[in-house]
Design a protein around this nucleic acid. Structure first.
Lengths: 207, 207
DNA sequence: ACTGATTATATTGTATACAAAAATAAATTA
DNA sequence: TAATTTATTTTTGTATACAATATAATCAGT
C-alpha cells in the first residue's frame, strides 16, 4: 500500500536501480558493504532479476565494485578529477568557440544565482554550470561519460563540507568571461585550475 | 561435443559475451541488426540469462544500441577520436614524465616491429604501442575507459583498409622519441596530430 | 486501397527453482 | 593451538515459466 512512495508503473528494474543508487549516495548503505542480491530483493520488494541488473549498472558507474559498495580512495579522487580536467577543459574550449547565445545566457545566470541564491539553489546552479559547459563539447560520448561520473563525484562530496568552498563563484565567473570573450585557451586553462582547486579543497578536508 | 571449440569451463556468460562480441566485430552479424535474446540463446546453446547480461555489457561498450548492433556514423567516428586525443594525449604527456625504462624499451620495440615485422605482428605492435602509452597515464579510470573503447575502434577499422596507412610508423617513432626526451608538450602534441591523421585517413576512405 | 480498431504473435521483463561455486563453520589431526 | 579437511550454509549463476509489452497481422468500415 505504501511501501513504495512512487510506485507509478516504473519498471521494477528502474525502481530498484534508483533506490539502490540513492541508498548508496546518501550513505544508507555505507562504503565497503557487501551487497547480497536476495537481501536487497526482499528489501525492495522485487525479485533478484532486476536487482542484478541494477548492480551491473551501478558497477559500471563505479559505485559498486565486486559486489561491494565502493570505498573511494584518495587515488580514486585524483583519477576522477584528472579525467574531469580533460573532459571539462575540452568542454570549456569548445564552449568558447561554439556556444550559442542562449546557452551562454544560461551560464551567466548560473553565476548570478551562485552569488545571490539560497544554498539549495546555489548548489544546483553550480552543478548546472558544469553541465552547460560540458554540453558545449557537442560530443555525446564525452557527455555520457561525464554524466556517468556524477554519482561518484556526488559520493565524494558527501564526505566533504563543500558549501563554503572559497572563491568557487569567482572562478566560475572568470571561466564564464573567457567563454564570452571566445578565448578558448584561457577558458580551458581556467577550468583546469578550477577543478584542481576543487580537488585540493577535497583532499585538504579528507586528511 | 564439438559445438563449442573452447568449452573449457568458462562461465556461460563469459562465453556468450565473447562469442557475441566477436560476431559483431567480424561482421558475422551486421550493423543495424536487431538482436533477439531467445534466438541468440539457442544459437549459442545457453539460456537467455547470460545472453541478456552480454547484451548489457556490449551496450555499455557501445557495440549495441537499443537491442540493435550499432551503426557507426561519421559523427561517432569523430567523437571517438576526439576522446582518444584527450586520453592518449594525456597518456603521452605522462609517459614523457614518468614512464619506466622497461616500458620505454617495450615502446621502442613496437616501433621496430612496425618497420620489420610481418603484417600480423605489425598490427599487434601498433596496438600495443598505444596501450603502453595509455598505461603510463597511471590512471585506472582512463585506462579502463580506453580499453572499453577498443571494440568500437576495432569495428571502425573493419570498414577501412588500414594496413597501408602512410607515415604511421614514422609518427609512432616521433612520439617515442619525444617521450624518450621527456618532452611532454611535444609528446602530447604529436600524439594528437597522429590521431587526427588517423581520423582523417578513416574519413577519407569512408567517403 | 487506406485508415483505424482488433486480434494474434513475438519479444522482453520479472519471478522462481535448482545447480554450481564460494564462503563459513565444524571437526580432525599434527 | 594451529593447520588442514570435511561439512554446512550462503550466495551466485543459469535455466525456465509466465506475465506484461511491444510488434506485426488481420479485418472491418469508409
Amino acid at each position: 500500500m505504501m511501501q513504495d512512495s512512487n510506485n507509478k508503473s516504473l519498471s521494477a528494474y528502474q525502481q530498484s536501480y534508483e533506490a539502490l543508487r540513492d541508498m548508496i549516495l546518501t550513505g544508507t548503505i555505507k562504503q565497503g558493504t557487501k551487497l547480497v542480491e536476495e537481501k536487497l530483493a526482499t528489501e525492495l520488494g522485487v525479485s533478484r532479476t532486476p536487482i542484478r541488473e541494477s548492480i551491473r549498472k551501478l558497477e559500471q558507474e563505479g559505485l559498486i565494485v565486486n559486489k561491494r559498495v565502493v570505498k573511494l580512495s584518495e587515488t580514486d579522487l585524483r583519477n576522477t578529477f584528472e579525467l574531469r580536467k580533460l573532459l571539462e577543459g575540452h568542454g570549456a574550449r569548445s564552449a568558447a568557440a561554439y556556444m550559442s547565445e542562449q546557452e551562454y545566457l544560461a551560464l551567466e545566470r548560473c553565476v548570478k544565482i551562485g552569488r545571490s541564491g539560497s544554498l539549495e539553489a546555489i548548489m544546483e546552479a553550480n552543478k548546472e554550470f558544469h553541465e552547460i559547459i560540458m554540453r558545449a563539447s557537442n560530443n555525446t560520448l564525452m557527455i555520457d561519460l561525464f554524466d556517468r561520473m556524477q554519482s561518484v563525484i556526488y559520493l565524494f562530496r558527501q564526505t566533504v563540507v563543500y558549501h563554503n568552498r572559497p572563491f568557487l563563484i569567482d572562478e566560475h565567473q572568470k571561466i564564464c568571461e573567457a567563454i564570452g570573450a571566445h578565448d578558448g585557451d584561457t577558458a580551458e586553462q581556467l577550468m583546469k585550475e578550477h577543478l584542481q582547486a576543487d580537488l585540493d579543497f577535497c583532499l585538504h578536508q579528507i586528511r
